[in-house]
Nucleic acid binder design. Structure first.
Lengths: 213, 213
DNA sequence: TCTCATAATGGGGCATCTCTCATTTTAGAG
DNA sequence: CTCTAAAATGAGAGATGCCCCATTATGAGA
């Protein structure tokens, strides 16, 4: 499924490679200087291409922004998926997902910083990020773990907490903030502080098994 | 204390008036188009002044941004103060303050929208906004209402929820989101959903007495 | 009424950014 | 090796924005 390269003509292969050079350059720069703080010509230069070449691969700047953000959220979700689905309770999935997401953003700061920039400069990214969250929350509600029902405002609140967690972590805060953000999620969803703590603790062994992979 | 005008020479009075015209124009435009989306020449034009006049009153753009943000946060705090201080419990103050703040932002959307823009384009505003919040939270911790201790991350989380509340409200959500944001604050601080609800309900009569002023 | 410090003007220098296009370079196909 | 389509180039048009400054207008006080 991954090895499509064989079926590409040399011409197509080159096109794909150049496009990827641009996307990777854009990710590097945008995560450092922010999305709006990065110009098209900087991206081209970083990719060792001329200014105009950019426009043979992307209609305009917004198109590469969307591509980069999508690539990053996809990469982050891939980094999580398998482990989360082994948990049966919605509450555990929420706690685990939140903590994982923050930890991945911290371990891969290029991704994390891009997310931070995208939160303010490419709002559409929220939909991608919240996609997995909605399912876990809905599951928890269905199972009766949470008293809060799922609506836009609850999701926005959880996203806001997630964002604060990533930001703190990138700013040098200890890994503990990931765990706290996870418990805050559960509390907002209606669980008591004690229950939230217990559920989150239970996910820790899964987290540790990942750390030692 | 307000009537300082009498002691101003005509020249000084004119200077003050012109400066205020600029600040008000800036507030109008920035709340509509965002801080970064508003240019100095647009501000000058809106204030019916020439481009260069701006620089007789502000060193640069960032100076008027700071002035406008400070003016708005001050105005909002003034709109709240008296009522909040009549509450004795930290938890009640937090709930009341949060709900009030969101309601004021919704009632005065020019202020609210400026805040939204400032959250992303003038980060220093967070310090001003959180100043009152820190005191209320600290009081609640001291009284044992909250299990969570006060640190930067908790404050950032509360700010993030506040922001989500204002944004939702400005986006047309019902007043209910203010109350929910208030309860989320209490839950994050460690109160059970039931206690949070009770405390927040108790503040409602104060809120209503204000609505009918 | 006249003077001159202060207020206001607005054109433009300089920097930056997006996107275009006429031209050159590259490399696969025959 | 040659031909040619695709890839890449990079100068620059067109916009916009910040800020400066030489110049003009105003109005308070003598």
């Amino acid at each position: 499924m991954t090895g499509r390269k064989a079926s590409l003509s040399p011409r197509e292969a080159k096109r794909v490679r150049t496009r990827q050079r641009l996307t990777e350059a854009a990710l590097r720069l945008m995560s450092e200087r922010g999305i709006n703080g990065t110009s098209v010509s900087e991206i081209a230069t970083e990719a060792e291409l001329a200014n105009g070449t950019f426009y043979l691969y992307f209609k305009d700047k917004s198109e590469i922004v969307a591509a980069v953000c999508q690539a990053v959220t996809l990469a982050m979700h891939n980094e999580m998926d398998s482990r989360r689905l082994s948990l049966e309770e919605g509450s555990a999935r929420v706690a685990f997902g939140t903590q994982q997401f923050i930890e991945i953003a911290a371990a891969e700061p290029t991704w994390g910083r891009l997310l931070m920039s995208a939160f303010t400069e490419f709002e559409a990214i929220k939909d991608d990020i919240s996609r997995y969250m909605r399912l876990d929350v809905a599951l928890g509600v269905e199972q009766g773990c949470f008293t809060e029902s799922v609506d836009e405002f609850v999701i926005d609140t959880l996203l806001a907490i997630l964002r604060a967690g990533i930001e703190a972590r990138l700013g040098g805060a200890k890994a503990e903030v990931g765990a706290r953000a996870a418990e805050y999620h559960l509390r907002v969803l209606g669980m008591s502080a004690a229950d939230a703590h217990r559920v989150r603790l239970a996910t820790d062994k899964v987290v540790e098994s990942q750390a030692s992979r």
